[in-house]
Design a protein around this nucleic acid. Structure first.
Lengths: 214, 214
DNA sequence: ACATGTGAAATCGTTCACAGCC
DNA sequence: GGCTGTGAACGATTTCACATGT
């Protein structure tokens, strides 16, 4: 009943509020949250409607209570269990990125086809052969899979993981995945975001009026 | 005159069409493009309206011509010049990722504060001290900057780069940047996308009806 | 028959505006 | 007085539906 956009913003608000909390700020107004998150006061208040938590006109929102409400709504997001498929440059970088972000994220295993990588510890995470993913997941629950294989392999790899019970993916490969509708995919297409940035850096987006008449 | 969403999809279509081209498929229908890109036929046709290129009902779209139209509309996106700020794990991974993607992307320099990194070649790209970015950009044009520094430093670093003439960013740090309105920022928040994936992996999003009555 | 191009309708998301409260 | 909560207006995006072309 809540939009993807709202979910995203709630996570952003939470991250801000956690910072506020460490600075022992106890109260905050919607317009302050808006400024810090690049949103608007209306938007913030509208997003909070989903939480069932209501502030008060005198002191705005109580940081601690608000955080509790958000976390209750978002569900337990500490100790998210991740498996990562594809231990190339990007995969390795993400492994070590998350190792510094514990305890929020917990990468429990990685998978690769390259024999020189398997059965080793990479950034503190054990690497197994891709063929064993199903057995592994039968014995170990994981919430999501990160796909960091080359584009050409992403689809098969995703199907395998899906088959092994994964219901949600973060896909770094620059291809759309065709998976059952109930399965969720977050796309992280690095190439695409650079292309978009390049497009909007020029004056392309403003007055594109010079249609060459055919 | 064209929405962000449409721009994004046009890039995706282009990448598909390039694959079609290598497979010497010469014609394609909107519904085929839709299937491959996770869109709908209407959406595809609507997006193409921006191009001024029109297909024909008999054979759909001619792949080569369509690609030309898209590329003309998108502007030259070969040899996009990038500088990367922050040569940590993630920064290094992106450097080597792009080194394999030439000639579309051309990372011309990286910057870091760590003395052990500067004046070395990292993934084939020279690394300079952060303090020299303005001089560097005075002598070398760059289209966009990638920010791969820790969250706490992202804002200052972005301001410096902005001051040095960068008009478009890809920001990997998990903070919103406050920059002049004309400056474009693409956010690539890896942590956030994993959080969203985790949220949508549960049954959180379906029937969130159990409001605890206060 | 089947695909395109495009007004018109529907849907989704954001912002406005104001009553109510502290 | 300045803030919250929210119905209503607005704007953006997607989908529908169908006239048109081959």
């Amino acid at each position: 009943v809540v939009s993807d956009k709202t979910v995203e913003r709630l996570f952003i608000y939470r991250s801000l509020l956690e910072k506020m909390q460490t600075q022992s700020q106890s109260n905050i107004y919607s317009h302050q949250i808006a400024d810090l998150s690049g949103s608007t006061a209306s938007q913030v208040r509208r997003d909070f409607m989903a939480l069932g938590y209501t502030g008060n006109p005198r002191h705005g929102y109580h940081v601690d209570e608000l955080l509790n409400s958000i976390s209750r709504f978002m569900g337990q997001s500490n100790g998210i269990k991740i498996v990562l498929i594809g231990v190339g440059n990007l995969g390795r970088a993400i492994l070590s990125y998350f190792s510094t972000l514990a305890p929020h994220f917990n990468t429990i295993a990685s998978f690769d086809a390259d024999p020189s990588k398997i059965h080793r510890l990479i950034a503190g995470v054990p690497c197994y052969p891709l063929t064993e993913i199903k057995e592994f997941l039968a014995g170990n629950k994981a919430d999501i899979a990160a796909i960091t294989v080359p584009a050409s392999e992403a689809q098969v790899v995703a199907e395998t993981a899906c088959d092994a019970g994964i219901r949600s993916f973060v896909n770094f490969a620059p291809v759309r995945l065709r998976l059952p509708m109930q399965v969720h995919v977050e796309y992280m297409d690095i190439r695409l975001s650079f292309q978009k940035a390049a497009f909007f850096s020029g004056s392309n987006h403003l007055d594109k009026k010079q249609e060459t008449p055919l």
